[in-house]
Simulated scan of single mutants.
Amino acid sequence: MEKTLNAEDIAAGVERLATAIREKHGGKHVALVGIRSRGDEVAERVLTLLSADDWDLSFGVLDISLYRDDFEHLHENPLLQESDIAFQVEGAHIILVDDVLFTGRTIRAALDALSDYGRPAKVELAVLIDRGHREMPIQPDYVGITLDTRRLDHVLVSLEGTDGKDEVRIVEKEKP
């Protein structure tokens, strides 16, 4: 069985993220940092919505490839991309943005990577999709879409800028 979310569902999730961030921080300086890949595109979309309010925001992109605890299980030559954080992390209020929150391990790696840039005053987490099944004590501050999934299901996110279309596919896996 396969379920899908379409471009309108994704846009509504991004709007929920922007609305929640606006309600909590409206006008206060925050920095959105998107986790490559796809978290950066979600962060750009949130930034676009918040910037319409003439809100001064910082933006950055974080590649966590070398910080993952499953590095040895990835491809032989993982695609390393550049991080781009052109603002002072030390003392900043940062909102990490990712596409899907699952076990929490990606966020742990992102926190490790971010700490190499300095010590932020505060870090919050915004995710387009929270699918549950944490392995680490990490919870989002902002959620666009909550999905009820089983542990072995696959949540496959496609975004226009990265993949050419906006779609989320939930592929249900049968228990072994």
Rank of each mutant, 00 (worst) to 15 (best):
Q88D: 14
R150H: 13
H154D: 15
V123H: 01
S115Q: 12
K3G: 00
K122W: 08
R16E: 10
R151M: 11
G161R: 15
E76L: 12
D148H: 13
S58Y: 01
S65K: 13
S115E: 09
A110H: 08
G118F: 03
L57H: 04
L96D: 04
S65G: 08
H133W: 12
L66M: 13
T4A: 11
W55H: 06
D166I: 05
N77K: 14
F87V: 05
E172Y: 14
E72G: 02
D98K: 10
A109G: 12
S58T: 08
I94N: 04
L17P: 02
L111W: 06
I35V: 15
V143H: 04
S58I: 02
R22G: 00
I85E: 00
E23I: 02
H154N: 15
L156F: 03
R16G: 01
V46L: 08
R45D: 02
T106C: 05
I10L: 10
I170M: 09
T106W: 07
W55N: 04
G164P: 05
I21E: 00
L147F: 04
R150V: 05
P176Y: 10
G144K: 05
E15S: 12
M1E: 13
D70T: 09
E8P: 00
L62V: 04
Y142A: 06
R38G: 03
D153G: 07
M136V: 13
K28V: 07
L57A: 09
R119K: 14
A20W: 01
M1R: 12
A121R: 14
A20L: 05
G13S: 09
E90L: 06
N6Q: 06
P140Y: 09
S158T: 10
G161H: 13
D63K: 00
S51H: 11
P137C: 10
R131I: 04
A52K: 15
Q139R: 15
A110V: 08
L80Y: 06
A109E: 07
H25F: 14
L5K: 08
R16A: 14
T162E: 14
L50F: 06
L50S: 00
Q139S: 14
K165C: 12
L47Y: 13
P120A: 10
L125N: 03
I95G: 01
A18F: 04
L50W: 02
L74I: 07
G104Y: 00
E15A: 14
T19W: 08
K122I: 07
L57I: 09
I145P: 06
D112T: 09
E160P: 03
A121L: 12
D9L: 07
G118D: 12
D166W: 05
K28C: 03
V61S: 01
M1G: 13
V123G: 01
H133Y: 10
H29Q: 15
P140M: 08
D99I: 09
G27V: 05
R151C: 04
E167W: 02
A18C: 06
R151N: 10
L80E: 13
V155D: 11
L111Q: 05
I145F: 10
L159G: 00
T19R: 15
R151S: 11
H75Y: 10
I129Y: 00
